[in-house]
């Protein structure tokens, strides 16, 4: 079952300068493969570097070190001109549907922008025709074509953002928390839409989210991130049913269940706060919050290794339940 690898990162590092000649370790030494046609979820808490990783993968932010290949071609370190044909293949959907649409442009102009930029249509009428098709695909009625973003609800704006992202017929779409600003009932509509579009256009998603329920529904595979490093990567079902990394287990246990009966079985909570990405702990980055930490975790950084059908970066894995 050799699946096509669409995008692949090796040893990817992104650091930002911080005060006092220190560095923010946003992404550290990440190896990741995204297969064609799948949805890979990147989950983690705020500040874990998942958004930065997503943007570094598609070269919106240049990496500090490491390589990214797309369909076998290296795309790191290319000039803007050389990268342009790849840019079309990778698009982004943003979290905040209020901020990601230019308030002074009509819906038509917003969705037409990628078409005009790459001169994909011979004339204006063709652009409008294509914009209509795209809006139809995301469920925005025709008569709203010349309205402004503020005249739409959050869910409708997110649909417009999606129409813009699929306009170039990309292979890969990075969905950066696409539903976390939306109401629950609207959230389901958008998630269903994303699944439909994936099927219809053969899209590959990198789905970035902090919401583990949403990830369970959307993702084929999941990569859990903590403080700039991947700690567990595997099939969603495997990881959710038998989490191998202590952090994954705590994350899953912390989800408030929509069932009052779950109150009676109080699960242990993860204590403490996330360490600063400027002064990362030595060895395993999770060890300061980990109840299983040993002296080995302090000195030796665990590598991702195959355990029980998925990859885990933990010396103690597999944990017994």
């Amino acid at each position: 079952m050799a699946r096509e690898i669409l995008l692949s990162a090796r040893g990817l590092v992104k650091e930002f300068p911080a005060k006092g000649h220190k560095r923010v370790h946003a992404v550290s030494d990440v190896d990741l493969d995204i297969y064609a046609g799948e949805t890979l979820a990147l989950v983690g808490e705020s500040g874990c570097g998942k958004s930065t990783l997503g943007r570094t993968l598609i070269q919106l932010i240049p990496p500090t070190a490491g390589t990214v290949t797309f369909q076998g071609h290296e795309i790191t370190g290319l000039s803007a001109r050389a990268f342009a044909p790849y840019r079309r293949q990778m698009q982004l959907i943003f979290q905040d549907p209020y901020a990601s649409l230019d308030p002074r442009m009509t819906v038509h102009d917003i969705v037409a922008e990628p078409l005009v930029t790459y001169k994909l249509c011979p004339d204006k009428a063709a652009v409008t025709q294509r914009v209509r098709e795209l809006l139809d695909a995301v469920g925005i009625p025709d008569e709203f074509l010349y309205r402004y973003p503020h005249q739409f609800s959050g869910g409708q704006r997110q649909r417009i953002g999606i129409a813009r992202a699929i306009a170039l017929q990309p292979r890969l779409i990075i969905c950066d928390e696409p539903v976390s600003a939306l109401d629950v009932s609207v959230q389901s509509q958008i998630l269903n839409l994303l699944k439909d579009l994936q099927e219809r256009f053969g899209l590959t998603y990198l789905f970035i989210s902090h919401d583990l329920s949403v990830v369970r529904f959307m993702a084929d595979r999941v990569a859990v991130m903590f403080l700039g490093r991947l700690c567990e990567v595997g099939d969603t079902k495997t990881v959710y049913e038998r989490p191998a990394h202590p952090y994954t287990r705590f994350l899953l246990d912390a989800i408030p269940m929509a069932d009052p009966r779950a109150r009676e079985t109080e699960k242990p909570l993860l204590q403490g706060e996330i360490p600063s990405p400027i002064d990362v702990p030595s060895g395993c980055r999770f060890r300061t919050r980990c109840p299983y930490a040993t002296s080995r975790c302090r000195t030796e950084e665990p590598e991702l290794r195959a355990v029980d059908g998925r990859l885990v970066a933990c010396h103690a894995a597999p944990l017994d339940r």
Partner: peptide, 22 residues
């Protein structure tokens, strides 16, 4: 730094056009 300019960049819109249009 606004998201809609980031969005335009991610599409590949040129700097001059971003200045003019956004």
């Amino acid at each position: 730094e606004s998201e809609y300019v980031q969005a335009a960049k991610s599409i590949g819109v040129s700097g001059g056009r971003i200045i003019r249009r956004h």
